[in-house]
């Protein structure tokens, strides 16, 4: 008999497409949380595939800390135009101005944690009942406990010890008014899978992921990009380095790695040989052992 096998990337793709279609069918008003990072770009690509030849039936939601890489914003705007999708921007600056969130102080100040306030407000204002995110279980130990369909109460909070069991491929997105779900179609992908898939599908990604020259400072074991948003200590020296970013977030917390990987193939090789997790360069996760779990319970991505 002929053998009917899918390669692992095609099986992961089929699973993610199935999940995206379930979101569309089970929710009234779902949205994609779009950061401009590779995972949310892959989600958007999969959504195109899931609903082809129709357009993506979800708006893209960007929670904007105001501390962006200009390349990310340019990439975001181009993609939105190409897809003909609707863009919803939730502004962290606005949350601060309205007194809903307080800016952190000091050298390592970041707007990472207060994004949660803006995210939850944006979900509420737009009455989104499902927010699709690119988080993966291999990224971080608290994320390893996430369901594909992850329930959030009316305060947007996650209760990791009381999650709905998920069996086979039957997903339960039933919820009361005011509650919402976070949905993670890439749950079973690893960093390596994402890169291989980007290579396989030839998906466009921001230039920041490729090796480039940049002014950086050395801080907490990573190369932090120099921008108007960080305070540089007199003891710190600004250097010019050839680096690339393995993840993209707020410019104040996203550290780069020294690399000469300027093509997707070289990136894949580099990822295969990497001995550090990609979030190892993220200042936000280093604050404590439970930094991610604590933020997630509050409603973080």
């Amino acid at each position: 008999m002929k053998s009917y096998n899918l390669s692992h990337l095609r099986e992961l793709e089929a699973e993610s497409i199935y999940v995206l279609r379930e979101v569309y069918a089970q929710f009234e008003n779902p949205a994609i949380l779009f950061s401009g990072g590779k995972d949310s770009i892959v989600i958007t690509h999969l959504a195109r595939k899931a609903f082809h030849p129709a357009k993506i039936p979800f708006p893209l939601v960007h929670i904007d800390t105001g501390h962006n890489f200009p390349e990310t914003i340019e990439f975001r705007d181009n993609l939105v135009e190409k897809l003909g999708a609707k863009l919803v921007v939730g502004s962290v600056q606005k949350s601060i101005d309205e007194g809903k969130a307080a800016e952190e102080k000091g050298k390592n100040a970041s707007r990472n944690a207060i994004q949660t306030v803006t995210l939850l407000d944006t979900v509420e204002e737009n009455q989104f009942d499902a927010a699709i995110g690119g988080a993966r279980r291999d990224e971080e130990k608290a994320r390893a406990k996430e369901r594909f369909f992850s329930h959030r109460d009316e305060f947007g909070q996650w209760d990791p010890k009381n999650q709905r069991p998920e069996l086979w491929n039957i997903f339960n997105g039933k919820h009361h008014h005011g509650e919402h779900f976070r949905v993670f179609p890439l749950s079973n992908w690893t960093e390596m899978d994402v890169w291989q898939y980007i290579l396989l599908e030839n998906i466009d990604i921001p230039s920041l992921y490729f090796a480039h020259e940049r002014k950086v400072i050395r801080r907490n074991g990573t190369w932090l990009p120099v921008s108007e948003f960080i305070q540089i200590d007199p003891k710190e020296t600004v250097e010019e380095k050839v680096i690339r970013f393995r993840t993209l977030g707020d410019i104040t917390i996203t550290g780069g790695v020294e690399s000469d990987a300027d093509t997707l193939e070289k990136i894949v090789e580099e990822v295969a040989a990497a001995r550090q997790t990609e979030r190892g360069n993220r200042e936000d996760d280093k604050r404590s052992e439970t930094a991610m779990e604590d933020r997630k319970k509050q409603g973080y991505f």
Binding site: A142, K145, K161, S187, E293
Partner: peptide, 24 residues
């Protein structure tokens, strides 16, 4: 401690929930 993802699991030394791990 690698597979126990939640604070309570690590503190109590028990696995409460299914943990998914990946290797290739």
């Amino acid at each position: 401690l690698l597979t126990d993802g939640l604070k309570d699991e690590r503190e109590q030394g028990i696995t409460i929930d299914v943990a998914y791990r990946y290797f290739a």
